[in-house]
């Protein structure tokens, strides 16, 4: 027999139902009957006990065991398929670094600029300047570092990044600083040249 969900089931000995008392309390209008009736008053105590317990649950004291986060992150790391990599110029042997990891570093670098927060970040290798007649050999703004023993030129990348910026921050200096950080991060931390950096401000924030 299916329950009739509209019919109250908690009938009190006085003929009313728990739902009636609940309804009254919800609307803040406690009737005379409720006040004087022992059964309704008992129901009211139950409702108040429920409300109080609910308040405790809003800030529920139970916590998962401390190792859960690490366990989940380990499971997630195993999931990571071999993501696309950027080749690093180590010489005869092949070395690469996942683009995902580089993007994380670049976001971090952008975040160091006050008022800037990185969102989308894409990194793509650019054609080798030796085989690409269009690219200038002296274009590298990312000074030095990296092992560069390969083709003689440090491999280059293009970075596309979107940012959100704190309302009121002057944009030009901020973008210049972000660009500088990205170039330096690629050169110093990775060993590649950030030849092209495209930045887009997509949102403003206020704190």
């Amino acid at each position: 027999m299916a329950l009739d969900r509209t019919a109250p089931a908690h009938e009190l000995p006085c003929g009313r139902h728990v739902e009636d008392v609940l309804d009254e309390l919800d609307h803040g209008t406690v009737s005379g009957h409720t006040r004087s009736c022992a059964h309704c008053t008992t129901a009211r105590h139950g409702i108040e006990a429920l409300n109080e317990a609910t308040r405790i649950l809003l800030d529920d004291p139970v916590e998962p065991e401390p190792g859960l986060v690490d366990r989940i992150m380990s499971a997630v790391r195993v999931e990571i398929r071999h993501s696309e990599g950027l080749t690093l110029p180590t010489g005869a042997d092949h070395a690469d670094i996942s683009i995902r990891a580089v993007a994380s570093l670049l976001r971090f670098a952008a975040d160091t600029v006050p008022g800037a927060r990185a969102r989308h970040c894409r990194v793509e290798p650019l054609p080798d300047p030796e085989t690409d007649p269009g690219a200038g050999a002296g274009a590298g703004a990312g000074a030095g570092a990296g092992a560069g023993a390969g083709a003689g030129a440090v491999p280059a990348v293009r970075i596309d990044m979107t940012l959100t910026v704190r309302y009121g921050t002057p944009l030009e200096p901020l973008l210049e600083q972000v660009r500088a950080q990205l170039v330096a991060a690629m050169a110093g931390h990775i060993g590649l040249e950030a030849r092209t950096v495209n930045l887009d401000v997509v949102d403003l924030w206020d704190e």
Binding site: H82, S98, S104, L105, F108
Partner: peptide, 15 residues
């Protein structure tokens, strides 16, 4: 003969 290396992640905690 060959040594191929892959950096899968960068630990940013030191920074």
């Amino acid at each position: 003969t060959t040594v191929t290396t892959h950096i899968t992640d960068i630990d940013l905690a030191p920074l």
